[in-house]
Structure formats: structure tokens, C-alpha cells
Design a protein around this nucleic acid. Structure first.
Lengths: 128, 128
DNA sequence: GTCTTATTGAGAATGATACACAATTTTTCA
DNA sequence: TGAAAAATTGTGTATCATTCTCAATAAGAC
């Protein structure tokens, strides 16, 4: 699991900086119960309710950044906007099944699917 | 493979109508070489070049309709807009692997992944 | 053929996301 | 420690994909 200091370390490694906003966003996702995911707008509202105001721009920027770093996972569900969740390692990693008619969405776990993706990625020269 | 008449039959079955626009769109996707996919805008331009003008609204409406019918497959690649391709059955069905950093995209085939999805869908009560 | 109703086209509206830029923080390093 | 350099933030604006509205048109049923 990602700690504040490991986030900072990884940011600095790439010439980026730790900020209170990034720390706050990470904490929200870490405290989110399993199976939950937030859109940028969701996160913005949730933070407002907690009295921690972060601008929408900053939220969009950091959700994208943290997804590219592998900390968050960007989900294309059927709502017309992206959702984000903590990018869990193998035993907790899951997939989504979405009906193109009614948008019903479920999560399921399947190691074979995950491994096939990882194996194919490696074979094709994708790297972390 | 989908013919004009089977499309018409399936539309009528649901109280919908066959139109020249729908026929044209189906034909474009059927003649598209494997591995190619089009966005709504792509399709609009392509049709213009062929002298077959169909309004963007109609294109959007029908891409969505045909996806819900299972004729097309809606792809969420990394370009910020949707792409569509013919929804091929099993031996030709494929998956996409997309890098969240550089957007590199490849296609690969894997029956196990497809079957896991189908099996899970059935178990969860999804139906065609 | 006529009637009912779905569909089309044009343009406006919406909504998610990106961008520009001045003000503010982090980090670095002298 | 305390500038200086560079990244980040917030505000407002811009962009771009997609949806919506509505009058005109065309498909299908009888």
C-alpha cells in the first residue's frame, strides 16, 4: 500500500513535487472501501464536504498523474466520464463487466485474465 | 456476417426501421480491413469523401444503436473519443492493450479471456 | 395510397476535460 | 538559512465529443 513518503519519494525521483493536495487525494482513495470508485467530480464534492477544498483543475491533473504513475487505475465505466480507484496488486485486482444496453456493472476477480494481459504486455515490449 | 436484410429484420423486430443511412454505415464497417476502427468523426469524413453525406447526429445515433444491438463494438482507446469496429465472433474477437503513459495500443487474441468474460456474464445474469 | 411513427439533419446545448497564466509553493544549493 | 529556479495551484476560459431539440421527411402497416 502507498504511504505518503513513498509517494513523495516516487514523485521526487521523477523531478516532481509532493503537495498537500496530492497527499489528500491519495488518502481519500486509500480510505475508500473496496469496490468503490470516484469520478473527478465525485472527489471534488467529497473533499468539499470534508472541508478540504481542492480545485477541479488540480483534481483532474492529479488523477491523471497518479494513474500514469500506477497508483490509481482509470476506469471507463458506462457513465460517460472516467472513474478512479486504487490500483490494487494481484489478489485484489479485479475486472469490470458492463452491459452495453443497460449499463449494469459488476466486478469480478480472475487471475488468468490479469496474467494474460501482463504476459502479452511484456511480450509486446510494454514496460513499467 | 451481417447482411442488409438481417439488419432490417432485426430492426423491424424491435419496432425500428431500416434506412439508407444505416445500410451505408453497416457497409463501411463490413468493408473495413481487420484491425481498423473508426471514430464518429472518422466515419463522417470517410463518407464525405465517398460522396455519401450523413449528418454527424445520425452517425452518433446509429453507432450507439448498432453497438447496443451487438453489431458494432464500442472501443475506449486512449484518444479521448470512442472508436467502433465490427463485433466479430470468437475466432476473430480480440482485446486491446493500452499503455496509460504513452497510449501505445495493440490488439491480441485470447480465447480464455473472452470465455472468462462470457462465463462471468452468464453467471451474473447478463443476457443478450 | 394514406396514416402513424421513427428517423433525419441542422444547429444549439451540455458536460467532461484541458489549457493559460499569474500567484504561490517546493526543492535545491550556494 | 534564504534566495533562485522550477513545479504546482486556482480561476477562469477554451475545447471537443456527444446529446438534444424540433421541424421536415421517409419507412412500414393496413
Amino acid at each position: 500500500m502507498y504511504s505518503t513518503s513513498s509517494l513523495k519519494a516516487e514523485l521526487n525521483e521523477r523531478g516532481w513535487r509532493m503537495t498537500p493536495q496530492r497527499e489528500t487525494i491519495l488518502q481519500v482513495f486509500q480510505n475508500l472501501s473496496e469496490g468503490k470508485h470516484l469520478s473527478a467530480e465525485d472527489l471534488h464534492i467529497l473533499l468539499n464536504e470534508q472541508g478540504e477544498v481542492i480545485s477541479l483543475s488540480t483534481i483532474y491533473r492529479n488523477l491523471k498523474l497518479m494513474s500514469r504513475m500506477g497508483i490509481l487505475r482509470e476506469l471507463e465505466l458506462a457513465e460517460g466520464h472516467k472513474h478512479y480507484e486504487i490500483n490494487q496488486p494481484s489478489p485484489h485486482h479485479h475486472h469490470h463487466l458492463i452491459c452495453v444496453r443497460c449499463n449494469k456493472t459488476i466486478e469480478f476477480r480472475n487471475d488468468a485474465v490479469l496474467k494474460t494481459g501482463a504476459k502479452t504486455a511484456q511480450k509486446e515490449g510494454y514496460h513499467c
